[in-house]
Amino acid sequence: MTTTARPRRRLGDLVLAGFSILVLFYLFMPIITIVAFSFNDPAGKFNLTWSGFTLANWSDPFAGGDLLDAMVYSIKIAVMASLVATVIGGLVALALSRYRFRGGALINLFLVLPLTTPEVVLGASLLNFFVAQDERILFFDVSRGFRTILVSHILFCVSFVAMTVKARVRGFDWSLEDAAMDLGAPPLRVFAKVTFPLIVPGILAAALLSFALSIDDYIITTMVRDVGGEPTFPLYIAGAFQREVSPQINVLSTLILIISVSLMASGSILGALRQRRSMA
Protein backbone atom coordinates (compact mmCIF):
# COMPACT_ATOMS: atom_id res chain seq x y z
CA MET A 1 0.00 0.00 0.00
CA THR A 2 1.45 3.32 -0.97
CA THR A 3 1.19 6.41 1.17
CA THR A 4 -0.82 8.23 -1.48
CA ALA A 5 -3.47 5.57 -1.54
CA ARG A 6 -4.29 5.96 2.11
CA PRO A 7 -6.21 9.26 2.11
CA ARG A 8 -8.11 8.14 -0.94
CA ARG A 9 -9.10 4.99 0.79
CA ARG A 10 -10.22 6.89 3.82
CA LEU A 11 -12.29 9.13 1.57
CA GLY A 12 -13.77 6.04 -0.04
CA ASP A 13 -14.68 4.70 3.37
CA LEU A 14 -16.35 7.94 4.25
CA VAL A 15 -18.38 7.97 1.05
CA LEU A 16 -19.39 4.35 1.62
CA ALA A 17 -20.42 5.02 5.20
CA GLY A 18 -22.31 8.16 4.24
CA PHE A 19 -24.12 6.38 1.43
CA SER A 20 -25.02 3.43 3.66
CA ILE A 21 -26.40 5.71 6.33
CA LEU A 22 -28.51 7.45 3.68
CA VAL A 23 -29.89 4.09 2.59
CA LEU A 24 -30.71 3.25 6.20
CA PHE A 25 -32.42 6.61 6.44
CA TYR A 26 -34.48 5.73 3.36
CA LEU A 27 -35.51 2.50 5.06
CA PHE A 28 -36.57 4.45 8.11
CA MET A 29 -38.40 7.31 6.42
CA PRO A 30 -41.86 5.74 6.65
CA ILE A 31 -41.10 4.44 10.14
CA ILE A 32 -40.24 7.93 11.30
CA THR A 33 -43.48 9.09 9.70
CA ILE A 34 -45.50 6.38 11.42
CA VAL A 35 -44.02 7.14 14.83
CA ALA A 36 -44.28 10.92 14.36
CA PHE A 37 -47.89 10.70 13.25
CA SER A 38 -48.77 8.73 16.37
CA PHE A 39 -48.33 12.14 18.05
CA ASN A 40 -50.37 13.97 15.44
CA ASP A 41 -53.59 15.70 16.28
CA PRO A 42 -55.36 15.20 12.96
CA ALA A 43 -57.80 17.89 11.91
CA GLY A 44 -60.23 15.33 10.57
CA LYS A 45 -60.49 11.60 10.37
CA PHE A 46 -57.50 11.16 8.11
CA ASN A 47 -54.22 11.12 9.93
CA LEU A 48 -52.29 11.95 6.77
CA THR A 49 -51.28 15.57 7.12
CA TRP A 50 -49.52 17.10 10.10
CA SER A 51 -51.64 19.47 12.11
CA GLY A 52 -50.28 19.60 15.64
CA PHE A 53 -48.60 17.70 18.45
CA THR A 54 -50.60 15.78 21.03
CA LEU A 55 -50.06 13.00 23.52
CA ALA A 56 -53.77 12.17 23.52
CA ASN A 57 -53.45 9.19 21.18
CA TRP A 58 -51.10 7.54 23.63
CA SER A 59 -53.35 8.04 26.64
CA ASP A 60 -55.01 4.73 25.78
CA PRO A 61 -52.73 2.81 23.43
CA PHE A 62 -55.24 0.01 23.03
CA ALA A 63 -58.21 2.21 22.22
CA GLY A 64 -60.12 1.07 19.21
CA GLY A 65 -60.86 -2.49 20.30
CA ASP A 66 -61.46 -3.68 16.74
CA LEU A 67 -57.92 -2.81 15.79
CA LEU A 68 -56.55 -4.77 18.70
CA ASP A 69 -58.87 -7.71 18.02
CA ALA A 70 -57.60 -7.79 14.47
CA MET A 71 -54.03 -7.79 15.72
CA VAL A 72 -54.69 -10.64 18.11
CA TYR A 73 -56.41 -12.61 15.36
CA SER A 74 -53.42 -12.05 13.06
CA ILE A 75 -50.97 -13.15 15.72
CA LYS A 76 -53.00 -16.28 16.37
CA ILE A 77 -52.94 -17.20 12.70
CA ALA A 78 -49.28 -16.33 12.31
CA VAL A 79 -48.21 -18.43 15.30
CA MET A 80 -50.12 -21.48 14.13
CA ALA A 81 -49.13 -21.08 10.49
CA SER A 82 -45.45 -20.65 11.27
CA LEU A 83 -45.43 -23.63 13.62
CA VAL A 84 -46.98 -26.02 11.12
CA ALA A 85 -45.02 -24.62 8.17
CA THR A 86 -41.76 -24.89 10.08
CA VAL A 87 -42.34 -28.52 10.95
CA ILE A 88 -43.43 -29.75 7.54
CA GLY A 89 -41.11 -27.43 5.61
CA GLY A 90 -38.20 -28.32 7.87
CA LEU A 91 -38.81 -32.03 7.24
CA VAL A 92 -38.74 -31.42 3.50
CA ALA A 93 -35.45 -29.54 3.81
CA LEU A 94 -33.87 -32.23 5.94
CA ALA A 95 -34.98 -34.97 3.59
CA LEU A 96 -33.54 -33.10 0.64
CA SER A 97 -30.19 -32.29 2.16
CA ARG A 98 -29.68 -35.48 4.11
CA TYR A 99 -30.64 -38.13 1.61
CA ARG A 100 -29.89 -38.84 -1.95
CA PHE A 101 -32.98 -40.27 -3.57
CA ARG A 102 -34.88 -40.55 -6.77
CA GLY A 103 -36.95 -37.43 -7.50
CA GLY A 104 -34.98 -35.02 -5.35
CA ALA A 105 -34.42 -32.59 -8.20
CA LEU A 106 -38.11 -32.62 -9.07
CA ILE A 107 -39.01 -31.78 -5.47
CA ASN A 108 -36.61 -28.88 -5.59
CA LEU A 109 -38.46 -27.60 -8.61
CA PHE A 110 -41.81 -28.00 -6.85
CA LEU A 111 -40.55 -25.95 -3.97
CA VAL A 112 -39.62 -23.06 -6.24
CA LEU A 113 -43.01 -22.89 -7.95
CA PRO A 114 -45.01 -21.29 -5.13
CA LEU A 115 -42.28 -18.71 -4.83
CA THR A 116 -42.48 -17.81 -8.50
CA THR A 117 -46.25 -17.59 -8.40
CA PRO A 118 -47.44 -14.03 -7.88
CA GLU A 119 -49.50 -13.71 -4.73
CA VAL A 120 -52.59 -12.54 -6.55
CA VAL A 121 -52.52 -15.72 -8.65
CA LEU A 122 -51.95 -17.93 -5.63
CA GLY A 123 -54.82 -16.24 -3.82
CA ALA A 124 -57.21 -16.51 -6.73
CA SER A 125 -56.42 -20.16 -7.30
CA LEU A 126 -56.97 -20.93 -3.63
CA LEU A 127 -60.26 -19.04 -3.63
CA ASN A 128 -61.48 -21.01 -6.63
CA PHE A 129 -60.33 -24.20 -5.01
CA PHE A 130 -62.11 -23.54 -1.74
CA VAL A 131 -65.43 -22.73 -3.33
CA ALA A 132 -65.35 -25.53 -5.86
CA GLN A 133 -67.21 -28.41 -4.35
CA ASP A 134 -69.34 -31.48 -4.78
CA GLU A 135 -70.03 -31.24 -8.49
CA ARG A 136 -66.36 -30.78 -9.22
CA ILE A 137 -63.44 -33.14 -9.05
CA LEU A 138 -62.76 -32.30 -5.50
CA PHE A 139 -63.56 -34.04 -2.31
CA PHE A 140 -62.59 -31.15 -0.13
CA ASP A 141 -65.20 -28.61 0.83
CA VAL A 142 -63.95 -25.95 3.16
CA SER A 143 -66.05 -22.90 3.80
CA ARG A 144 -63.92 -19.83 3.90
CA GLY A 145 -62.83 -18.56 7.27
CA PHE A 146 -60.17 -19.16 9.85
CA ARG A 147 -59.28 -22.59 8.48
CA THR A 148 -58.87 -21.50 4.90
CA ILE A 149 -56.73 -18.53 5.92
CA LEU A 150 -54.56 -20.81 8.02
CA VAL A 151 -54.20 -23.42 5.30
CA SER A 152 -53.21 -20.79 2.74
CA HIS A 153 -50.70 -19.13 5.04
CA ILE A 154 -49.07 -22.49 5.76
CA LEU A 155 -48.85 -23.12 2.05
CA PHE A 156 -46.95 -19.98 1.15
CA CYS A 157 -44.69 -20.40 4.18
CA VAL A 158 -43.68 -24.02 3.49
CA SER A 159 -41.50 -23.21 0.49
CA PHE A 160 -39.78 -20.38 2.28
CA VAL A 161 -39.09 -22.61 5.27
CA ALA A 162 -37.76 -25.46 3.15
CA MET A 163 -35.49 -23.13 1.20
CA THR A 164 -34.18 -21.36 4.29
CA VAL A 165 -33.47 -24.50 6.27
CA LYS A 166 -31.92 -26.17 3.25
CA ALA A 167 -29.52 -23.29 2.78
CA ARG A 168 -28.55 -23.31 6.44
CA VAL A 169 -27.79 -27.01 6.64
CA ARG A 170 -25.94 -27.07 3.36
CA GLY A 171 -22.50 -28.46 3.83
CA PHE A 172 -23.43 -29.99 7.15
CA ASP A 173 -21.44 -33.15 7.75
CA TRP A 174 -24.06 -35.84 8.28
CA SER A 175 -21.41 -38.37 9.25
CA LEU A 176 -21.47 -36.81 12.70
CA GLU A 177 -24.76 -38.63 13.16
CA ASP A 178 -23.12 -41.87 12.16
CA ALA A 179 -20.39 -41.24 14.66
CA ALA A 180 -22.93 -40.70 17.39
CA MET A 181 -24.77 -43.85 16.42
CA ASP A 182 -21.57 -45.80 16.31
CA LEU A 183 -21.06 -44.70 19.87
CA GLY A 184 -24.33 -46.39 20.68
CA ALA A 185 -26.77 -43.48 20.83
CA PRO A 186 -30.33 -44.36 19.85
CA PRO A 187 -31.67 -42.51 16.79
CA LEU A 188 -33.98 -40.18 18.71
CA ARG A 189 -31.17 -39.21 21.01
CA VAL A 190 -28.95 -38.56 18.00
CA PHE A 191 -31.55 -36.27 16.57
CA ALA A 192 -32.02 -34.41 19.85
CA LYS A 193 -28.34 -34.11 20.71
CA VAL A 194 -26.60 -33.85 17.36
CA THR A 195 -28.89 -33.01 14.49
CA PHE A 196 -31.33 -30.65 16.13
CA PRO A 197 -28.78 -28.27 17.71
CA LEU A 198 -27.10 -27.97 14.34
CA ILE A 199 -30.23 -27.11 12.44
CA VAL A 200 -31.77 -24.95 15.12
CA PRO A 201 -30.56 -21.58 13.77
CA GLY A 202 -32.02 -22.40 10.37
CA ILE A 203 -35.29 -23.57 11.93
CA LEU A 204 -35.52 -20.45 14.02
CA ALA A 205 -34.85 -18.18 11.07
CA ALA A 206 -37.45 -20.04 9.04
CA ALA A 207 -40.05 -19.81 11.79
CA LEU A 208 -39.49 -16.09 12.17
CA LEU A 209 -39.68 -15.57 8.43
CA SER A 210 -42.95 -17.51 8.29
CA PHE A 211 -44.38 -15.53 11.14
CA ALA A 212 -43.47 -12.29 9.40
CA LEU A 213 -44.91 -13.43 6.08
CA SER A 214 -48.12 -14.62 7.64
CA ILE A 215 -48.81 -11.66 9.87
CA ASP A 216 -48.24 -9.24 7.00
CA ASP A 217 -50.14 -11.04 4.29
CA TYR A 218 -52.87 -9.03 2.68
CA ILE A 219 -53.30 -10.16 -0.92
CA ILE A 220 -53.97 -13.86 -0.34
CA THR A 221 -55.90 -13.38 2.88
CA THR A 222 -58.31 -10.98 1.25
CA MET A 223 -59.37 -13.76 -1.11
CA VAL A 224 -59.63 -16.72 1.24
CA ARG A 225 -61.38 -14.94 4.12
CA ASP A 226 -65.05 -15.30 4.87
CA VAL A 227 -67.55 -12.56 4.23
CA GLY A 228 -68.67 -11.03 7.47
CA GLY A 229 -65.90 -12.83 9.32
CA GLU A 230 -63.21 -11.41 11.53
CA PRO A 231 -60.60 -9.32 9.71
CA THR A 232 -56.87 -9.87 10.12
CA PHE A 233 -54.73 -6.84 10.90
CA PRO A 234 -53.80 -6.03 7.27
CA LEU A 235 -57.43 -6.47 6.20
CA TYR A 236 -58.50 -4.13 8.94
CA ILE A 237 -55.96 -1.52 7.88
CA ALA A 238 -57.04 -1.75 4.26
CA GLY A 239 -60.66 -1.28 5.30
CA ALA A 240 -59.76 1.60 7.56
CA PHE A 241 -57.92 3.40 4.76
CA GLN A 242 -61.27 3.59 2.99
CA ARG A 243 -63.01 5.41 5.80
CA GLU A 244 -60.65 6.91 8.32
CA VAL A 245 -56.97 6.71 9.10
CA SER A 246 -56.88 6.84 12.85
CA PRO A 247 -53.74 7.73 14.82
CA GLN A 248 -54.40 4.59 16.86
CA ILE A 249 -53.04 2.62 13.90
CA ASN A 250 -49.78 4.53 14.32
CA VAL A 251 -49.78 4.03 18.07
CA LEU A 252 -50.23 0.29 17.75
CA SER A 253 -47.61 0.06 14.97
CA THR A 254 -45.16 2.00 17.10
CA LEU A 255 -45.82 -0.32 20.03
CA ILE A 256 -45.21 -3.38 17.87
CA LEU A 257 -42.00 -1.79 16.68
CA ILE A 258 -40.82 -1.11 20.22
CA ILE A 259 -41.68 -4.63 21.35
CA SER A 260 -39.93 -6.31 18.45
CA VAL A 261 -36.87 -4.11 18.72
CA SER A 262 -36.55 -4.84 22.42
CA LEU A 263 -37.00 -8.55 21.82
CA MET A 264 -34.31 -8.38 19.17
CA ALA A 265 -32.00 -6.32 21.36
CA SER A 266 -32.40 -8.60 24.37
CA GLY A 267 -31.82 -11.57 22.10
CA SER A 268 -28.55 -10.19 20.86
CA ILE A 269 -27.46 -9.15 24.35
CA LEU A 270 -28.20 -12.65 25.61
CA GLY A 271 -26.29 -14.05 22.67
CA ALA A 272 -23.33 -11.82 23.38
CA LEU A 273 -23.35 -12.78 27.04
CA ARG A 274 -23.47 -16.47 26.25
CA GLN A 275 -20.64 -16.03 23.78
CA ARG A 276 -18.52 -14.24 26.36
CA ARG A 277 -19.22 -16.92 28.94
CA SER A 278 -18.32 -19.72 26.59
CA MET A 279 -15.13 -17.92 25.68
CA ALA A 280 -14.20 -17.42 29.31
Binding site: L127, N128, F130, V131, Q133, S143, R144, R225, D226, V227, G228, G229, G239, Q242, R243
Partner: peptide, 22 residues
Amino acid sequence: NDNNEYFAAIQPDLANGKAIKP
Protein backbone atom coordinates in the same frame (compact mmCIF):
# COMPACT_ATOMS: atom_id res chain seq x y z
CA ASN B 1 -66.24 -1.04 1.42
CA ASP B 2 -66.82 -1.46 -2.27
CA ASN B 3 -69.64 -2.94 -4.34
CA ASN B 4 -67.47 -4.90 -6.75
CA GLU B 5 -65.18 -6.15 -4.03
CA TYR B 6 -68.08 -7.27 -1.87
CA PHE B 7 -69.87 -8.92 -4.75
CA ALA B 8 -66.67 -10.75 -5.65
CA ALA B 9 -66.47 -11.99 -2.09
CA ILE B 10 -70.03 -13.34 -1.96
CA GLN B 11 -70.32 -14.50 -5.58
CA PRO B 12 -68.57 -17.88 -5.13
CA ASP B 13 -70.88 -18.85 -2.29
CA LEU B 14 -74.14 -17.56 -3.67
CA ALA B 15 -73.43 -18.94 -7.14
CA ASN B 16 -73.01 -22.36 -5.58
CA GLY B 17 -76.18 -22.11 -3.56
CA LYS B 18 -74.39 -21.60 -0.26
CA ALA B 19 -75.64 -19.05 2.23
CA ILE B 20 -73.32 -16.29 3.37
CA LYS B 21 -73.01 -15.19 6.96
CA PRO B 22 -74.71 -11.77 6.87
